[in-house]
Amino acid sequence: MGYDSSATRARLLEAAYEEFVAHGLAGARVERIAKNAPANKQAIYAYFGSKADLFDAVLGARLQVLADVVPFTADDLPAYAGALFDAFIADPDLIRLTQWKTLEKPEASPAELEAHLTKAQAVADAHGTDLETGMDALMIALAAAQSWLFTPPAIRNPTGDDEKSRLKRHRAAVIASVEALAGRLMPAE
């Protein structure tokens, strides 16, 4: 059986995702990634260049999966925030990975900046406002979708509701908050 470089690359990305979620960029070890792939360390450098570049590749790949799962709806930010909430509940490791990114690499990459600017402009165009207002509304939707995920369990569920009821209540709160906050920024239609 011949060598399959695309399979090796995919295994490295998956092993790196698990490593970066667990340890962040600084705490991740190339040796563990290679062992868990299984591949050799040199393959990481050959395919990705550096550990930091591998982190960027993992983050980019995971955000692309998120974009495929949750289509962006510039004209309905509350629904978009609700769908993001669902996706984050389904894959909480993605939030952990983005938290590591924020802590260890707070600067926006050119691709990240372009993605946010494109979405913010779409929001602005859909609601007849300017780019800054579109960006504000977009950031409100993103923050609301993630808000309950950062809250300690005793705070997010003080009444001890069953998990299904709690998630339903929190999802409704996410949608209502985006309707209220982002809606205040947009001109009345």
Score class of each variant (00 low, 15 high):
56 D>I: 08
97 L>A: 11
18 E>Q: 13
148 W>D: 04
97 L>H: 09
93 D>H: 15
78 P>A: 12
9 R>H: 11
180 A>M: 11
72 F>Y: 13
186 M>Q: 04
180 A>I: 02
164 K>L: 13
102 T>I: 09
22 A>K: 14
76 D>I: 10
100 W>S: 14
19 E>P: 02
188 A>R: 14
5 S>Q: 12
88 F>A: 14
30 V>P: 15
26 A>I: 07
50 S>A: 05
167 L>W: 04
18 E>K: 09
169 R>G: 10
10 A>F: 05
20 F>P: 00
97 L>Q: 13
62 R>D: 11
56 D>S: 10
186 M>L: 15
45 Y>Q: 07
12 L>C: 04
164 K>H: 03
2 G>W: 12
92 P>F: 09
92 P>I: 07
82 G>D: 13
148 W>F: 05
31 E>A: 10
123 V>F: 00
35 K>V: 07
15 A>I: 07
143 A>P: 00
160 G>P: 12
88 F>G: 15
107 E>D: 14
45 Y>T: 05
126 A>F: 01
108 A>V: 10
88 F>Q: 14
108 A>K: 12
56 D>V: 11
186 M>R: 05
175 I>Y: 06
16 A>I: 08
57 A>G: 03
175 I>P: 03
106 P>G: 09
91 D>T: 11
90 A>C: 13
35 K>G: 01
131 L>G: 03
131 L>Q: 07
165 S>A: 13
2 G>I: 03
179 E>V: 06
140 I>H: 00
183 G>Q: 01
18 E>M: 06
178 V>I: 13
112 E>S: 06
145 A>P: 02
180 A>R: 02
139 M>A: 02
45 Y>C: 07
147 S>T: 01
117 L>E: 08
152 P>A: 04
